[in-house]
Each structure stands twice: as C-alpha cells, then as structure tokens.
C-alpha cells in the first residue's frame, strides 16, 4: 500500500514577471515503511516539496495523498516533521518540547508525560528530559526533534536536512541512530540531504531532483542489505550507487 502519493504536482512562486516555477510535474509514490531520500542541487525545491507534503504550503497544481487522504493542512496525526537545526523551542525543556504537539491537543498531563518519556528513551536520551536546548549538544537536539516528530505516532515522518549542521562524526552516528529508530517504529520516511554518502547509507530509494524548476530525474533503488553497517561504505556497491547519484546531479547543473 502506498503511504504517500504525489500526483503531477507543480508549484510557481508568485513574484516578478509571472512568477518563479519552483517544482514541475512531480510524481512520487512511496510504499508504507519505506525510507526515501531526496537529493538535488540547492534551490531545486526540496524544502518546498516537503512543506507541501506537510500541508504547510499549498501547491499550485497537483494532489498529495498521505495515508489514503488528501493533504490540505498540517495534520500531525498523519505527518510528523523534523526541521533543520535550531527548531526546538529554547524556552521549553527537552521533555516539554516533545510534549508540545500533545499539549496543543489538550492531552491530559500524565499521558503526555508518559508518552514523552517513552520517546525520550526511544531516541536514547533517557535522563535528559529536564535539560533545556542550550544545555544539549547539536546531536542531542536533533534527537529531541525526532522525538517531537514521532510523539503523535504519525505513519509518515518528513525530515529536511536534519543533520546538516552537525559535524561529520556526529552526523554518521545520528544516521545510524535514525535507522535504529526507524526499524523499531517502521515509519515511512522522506529525508532530504545534501550528503550523497548519507543518502546511500540511509535509503531504500533515492530520488534525484533537477535544478530549478525541480523535477524528479532519477530514482535509484539502494539494494544494500539491512541492517546497514559502517563497513558497507567501503564496498564497491556503495561506491557505484554514490557515483551514479553524483553523475545525475552533475548533469543537472
């Protein structure tokens, strides 16, 4: 069953001289439980597409269906979102940040706390709930963001370059951690990144987008077995897949 369906989506940002075509004729179908990574040059419309998947922005044309229903507005029960760094609320503790979506819906305090504690354990931050964002490292902050995205147990998790601001080592660890979390929760994930290594390491399928206006120009199945290990990065298969994505991206520039 498909968890996400994007049907001939196009988007034009209104502006000078008839507007900026940002996305053109995007069609995507993602099966439930899959990990899909989107790569493409800066400004090709990856963030715009993700916003539309989350119901945060309205496309000019085309339809988006998630879990069998059209997306028109944000629906945290269907779609959780993890943004780029620094999206935690600095005035709330880690636990309160995770509880935030539940607090909006008026979930009783005890339920909220229990659920948030579970999420904190899931992302490997047991005991850090009382800390404020400025007391957490970059990697820990993104763990809290993931926990917040998952707290309402949506079938789909969208992630926009969540590890872009982290140093290389932390980034690798976080990728690995994300796969662990994903394998226990079995969400459908759409993950945007600039890093080709990260793309190959994480994905079931990589979608390559062209420069503006963004189109899907290639779909690459990542056949590496799971669970993924760091050692796989040194294999020929890994190198070939990475090279193929790189060739596609280069063509678009």
């Amino acid at each position: 069953m498909s968890a996400i369906n994007v049907d001939r989506l196009s988007h034009v940002y209104s502006g000078t001289e008839g507007g900026v075509p940002a996305l053109q004729d995007i069609t995507i179908d993602v099966d439930a439980g899959k990990f899909v990574v989107i790569v493409g040059p800066s400004g090709c419309g990856k963030t715009s597409l993700l916003m539309m998947l989350a119901g945060l922005r309205h496309q000019t044309r085309g339809a988006i269906t998630v879990a069998g229903k059209r997306i028109a507005d944000p629906d945290p029960e269907r779609v959780g979102v993890v943004f780029q760094e620094a999206s935690l609320f600095p005035w709330l503790s880690a636990l309160d940040n995770i509880e935030f979506p539940l607090a909006l819906r008026g979930t009783p305090r005890d339920d909220r706390r229990r659920r948030a504690e579970q999420m904190l354990t899931l992302v490997g931050l047991e005991g850090f709930g009382a800390r404020y964002p400025h007391e957490l490292s970059g990697g820990m902050k993104q763990r809290v963001s993931i926990a917040r995205g998952l707290v309402q147990d949506p079938p789909v998790l969208l992630m926009d370059e969540p590890f872009a601001a982290l140093d290389e080592q932390t980034r690798m660890t976080m990728g690995h951690e994300l796969l662990r979390i994903w394998s226990t929760t079995r969400k459908t994930v759409v993950f945007i990144t600039h890093s080709l290594t990260e793309a190959v390491y994480l994905a079931d399928e990589v979608l390559v987008m062209s420069a503006r206006p963004g189109r899907i120009i290639d779909r690459i199945e990542i056949t590496l077995p799971r669970p993924r290990t760091y050692e796989m990065m040194a294999t020929d298969t890994f190198g070939r897949l990475r090279e193929r994505i790189w060739q596609q991206i280069r063509k678009t520039e």
């Binding site: 989350a54 945060l56 944000p74 629906d75 945290p76 779609v79 959780g80 979102v81 943004f83 780029q84 620094a86 999206s87 609320f89 935030f100 979506p101 909006l104 819906r105 917040r148």
Partner: peptide, 16 residues
Amino acid sequence: SDHVLVARSCGATRTQ
C-alpha cells in the same frame, strides 16, 4: 519564523 512553522506543523491554531 522557524518556531512558528514548527508549531503549525504540530497543528497549532492561530491563538495557540
């Protein structure tokens, strides 16, 4: 604006 966006993605109303 990032914080407003996060809140919207969590389903916050204008008042919230």
